[in-house]
Design a protein around this nucleic acid. Structure first.
Lengths: 251, 251
DNA sequence: CGCTATTTTGAAAGGGCTCAAGAGTAGTGG
DNA sequence: CCACTACTCTTGAGCCCTTTCAAAATAGCG
């Protein structure tokens, strides 16, 4: 597994004319699919950001490694996601496949030219950047002040929403990543993740969907999940009452 | 102080022609300055993002409030910074002045038109978005796996770099925000921030520059600060050896 | 079936948090 | 000039959640 973990070879991305593209997905559709095995890297942190990638199938993890070996997973990418837009010269993080996956790529140069030429593409690029920024901001809130249980529930909730938005009828979500991946993403240890999931099962909030497939989880009480996630915003108007809140409520 | 904490009145930003602007700063320079008192809000989280702001002087804090009153400061803005670019319909966070400050604003519409029309402005907008993204990513790493001391040192180091880049000859940095602000930004409590600073003074790393001005801090041992910040990246090549690092090093 | 990787569970330790009190620092007004 | 008040910051003690270290259980795969 580890032996196969080298960055996929950079193929020559021809400077084909992308002028006709109506949306970002179309921009990639003419490019060949590149297959990735489990744990195979797409690029590394610090590499020259020469390409933009679209995930065709599978899941990717974005990560940074600290000097002492600690790993931080800044996000996950799923089919349809695009990576590399909000970067300049170097990739800010590494990207690798969690399981079998495939991507398409186009060169940054071709991408930027296509976007500059197209009035249809620019809003979509902007929209994706905004989504990415919003996601990172949410993650920042999660890491800075949520408990282990709140982090897990927030994480599961996001996956549930993604699943439901994708047209899935029931509340079963797939978590293709390992517990360690979840831990590194949520700023916890693998043991705490495991314990917290056990606790949530004990509360009847969720259930492992099938003993055969541990990575499928059924949400039994979505409302409870929302409540435990700590995201229940107060009335927005209340935010105006005391502009300069402190870290905790006055008691 | 709290009584004055209402959002500044939205003045009519005339749709003046910004076509001639060579850079983003110029875009704002024709707009009137709006003065802010301490703790006065520029906008609130959830407000319609109708304007883009440039900080002229002073420091702003960007924050989000959780349902139970906890506050997360996602970042600080200093003179020359621009806020509101990477947002869509609503502001993702509130913004308020830490001390006396002033800003200029232009409407989002005028901003977008100017950027769309100018080949000079687009790269600058993109560049600022990338910087913002890089900053949030770094903050994410900080919150997800750094100790209190590492967080403080990282924070101080960033301010030191800003100060030195600004042409300041000595290693004295100004921290206009309160300890509570720092705590809410670093995911710590005010007590831990205070204790950690005391510890760093004990180690001889820093010193309160002047008893009169507690918000000025002199860095005595910059090298030590870097070391304690935990940011010492390993050789980038080493990152390629084991693509799938775990949360901690094998022992 | 046997090996390995992953996950779960247990017990103990530790870092940061909570609660509480004290020490500076500013501003106000007599 | 000093007392009074309000606010920020510091310091102390005990506790709790998460981590650490260790081992057992489970799943995956040849």
């Amino acid at each position: 597994m580890f032996l196969s973990s080298y960055a996929i070879n950079h193929q020559v991305a021809k400077a084909t004319p992308f002028a006709a593209a109506e949306n970002l997905h179309e921009l990639f559709s003419s490019q060949p699919r590149e297959h990735l095995e489990a744990s195979q890297a797409v690029f590394f942190e610090g590499d020259d950001a020469k390409h933009i990638f679209e995930v065709v199938e599978g899941t990717l993890r974005l990560f940074r490694i600290l000097s002492d070996g600690r790993r931080v997973i800044t996000g996950f990418l799923y089919a349809g996601d695009i990576v590399g837009v909000s970067l300049r010269n170097k990739y800010l993080y590494g990207a690798e496949a969690i399981g079998p996956a495939s991507v398409r790529r186009i060169s940054r140069k071709a991408f930027e030219e296509a976007v500059a030429d197209s009035d249809a593409l620019r809003p979509e690029v902007f929209s994706r950047i905004c989504d990415e920024m919003a996601a990172v901001q949410d993650q920042l809130v999660l890491l800075s002040s949520k408990t282990a249980e709140e982090r897990l529930c927030t994480f599961l909730l996001k996956h549930l929403q993604r699943s439901l938005a994708g047209g899935s009828p029931d509340a079963v979500i797939e978590l293709p990543m390992t517990r360690q991946d979840m831990a590194d993403h949520l700023g916890l240890t693998i043991e705490t993740v495991s314990r917290t999931i056990t606790k949530l099962i004990g509360k009847g909030v969720l259930k492992v969907a099938n003993p055969v497939a541990r990575h499928f989880i059924r949400i039994e009480k979505p409302a409870k999940l929302v409540q435990l996630s700590g995201d229940g915003r107060t009335n927005p108007l209340a935010l105006r009452v005391l502009p300069c809140h402190r870290g905790r409520l006055p008691h």
